[in-house]
Each structure stands twice: as structure tokens, then as C-alpha cells.
Computed example of a mutant assay.
Amino acid sequence: MPHLNPYIHFNGNAEEAFTFYKSVFGGEFETVSRFKDFSNPEHPFPEHELNKIAHISLPIGNNSYLMGSDVPEMLGTVNEQENRSKISITAESKEEADKLYNGLSAGGAVEMPIADSPWGAYFGMFRDRYGIEWMVSFNEKH
């Protein structure tokens, strides 16, 4: 069975964001690569971008990863207020759902407080302090 691994982009603060995510999920980064690691004389990165994140991955649970990078300025910027997608997390308990919801939403904007939903799940939605949208749920029937 395939595994889905969200890959999110940032405007120069990927390292800060992933340090925050690591504080909530725990674990250690599997990969941290910077633009300087991919330096090419034919296509050099500007000096001020060399320490930005080219790729970072954080293992989450079994066989899942949260991955991301900064977007080089030559490619434009990420719209941090977009509303195209959300990262959905299914917790294994109500306590874990609360921990993840409260941890990840700290400093962000709550869209739907975590609570029992009409469809039977314990569910909440928010945009974290980095503009990433999340859904956290727990359903004891699944």
C-alpha cells in the first residue's frame, strides 16, 4: 500500500517551521540539506540563500514523513494564505488528537475548535503560525 508524505514549501523559514513541528511530533530529522549542498558554478544560488533549506524530512509515525523546503527567490514566493489543501492527521486516541491540535495550532488561527463532530469524529481545523493548514481527527470506530 502506498504512503502519503506531505511536502510543504516556505519563504525562507522552513528550518524554523520544521523545528517547531519536531517539537510537537518528536523524533529527529532524517534529512537536512541546504542550497549550499547543491552549489553549481553554472547556476549559483545567491549568497543570502545558501543556508536556506533545500530539503528536510521528519519521520512521523510508521513509514510517514513530513517533508519540505524553502523556495528559492528566483522561483517566486509561496502564498501563505492559500486555501488549496490541508494536511490531515488521524490520531490514535483523543489525548493524542488534543496534544497534536494544541501543539500545532499554538500561535496559529483556529478555523474549527477540536470537538465532537456531527459525523462522529473528534475533529478540529486550523492554520498554523507558518500558514500551513491542518485537520486533526480521532474516530474510535476506525
Rank of each mutant, 00 (worst) to 15 (best):
D98C: 08
A54M: 15
A115P: 00
H142D: 15
E96R: 09
G61W: 11
E28C: 01
G26R: 03
V136M: 07
S64L: 09
S85P: 01
K94I: 03
T31K: 07
R84N: 15
E95A: 13
S117P: 00
H9M: 15
P2Y: 10
L50S: 10
S57I: 08
S105R: 07
N102W: 06
A97D: 02
P59I: 01
E92H: 14
E82G: 12
G12H: 01
F25H: 04
T31H: 13
I53A: 04
L75V: 06
L66V: 09
N139I: 08
K52P: 04
F20N: 02
L104D: 00
G131H: 02
L66R: 11
G103R: 08
N102L: 13
D37S: 08
T90N: 12
N102H: 14
F25K: 09
N63C: 08
I132K: 02
D128G: 09
I114T: 03
N40R: 03
L58Y: 11
S137G: 10
N5A: 06
F29L: 06
Y65H: 13
F18R: 02
S23C: 10
E47L: 09
S64M: 14
G12S: 06
K52H: 12
N63Q: 15
M135N: 11
P46L: 04
R84W: 14
F20P: 07
N40Y: 05
A14K: 09
D116N: 14
W134V: 05
E140Q: 13
K94Y: 06
N5M: 03
N62I: 12
A91R: 05
L58E: 08
E28K: 06
S33G: 02
T77M: 10
P72I: 06
N79E: 12
R129T: 05
L4A: 10
E80H: 12
I8F: 04
G27Y: 09
S88T: 14
W134R: 09
V110C: 09
P113E: 12
G68P: 02
H9Y: 11
V24D: 01
Y65C: 11
E73Q: 11
I8K: 00
T90R: 11
N83T: 13
E30W: 07
E111T: 11
T31Y: 10
F20W: 05
E15I: 12
S93Q: 04
R129A: 05
P72W: 05
H3K: 15
E133L: 14
Y101F: 15
S64A: 12
I53K: 07
N40T: 01
K52N: 08
F45L: 06
Y122M: 06
G61Y: 10
G108Y: 04
E42A: 06
N5R: 05
S69N: 10
W134A: 07
F123G: 02
H48K: 13
A14L: 07
Y21Q: 03
T19R: 14
T77A: 11
V110R: 08
G12V: 00
M74W: 02
G12C: 01
T77N: 13
D98R: 08
L4P: 00
G131I: 01
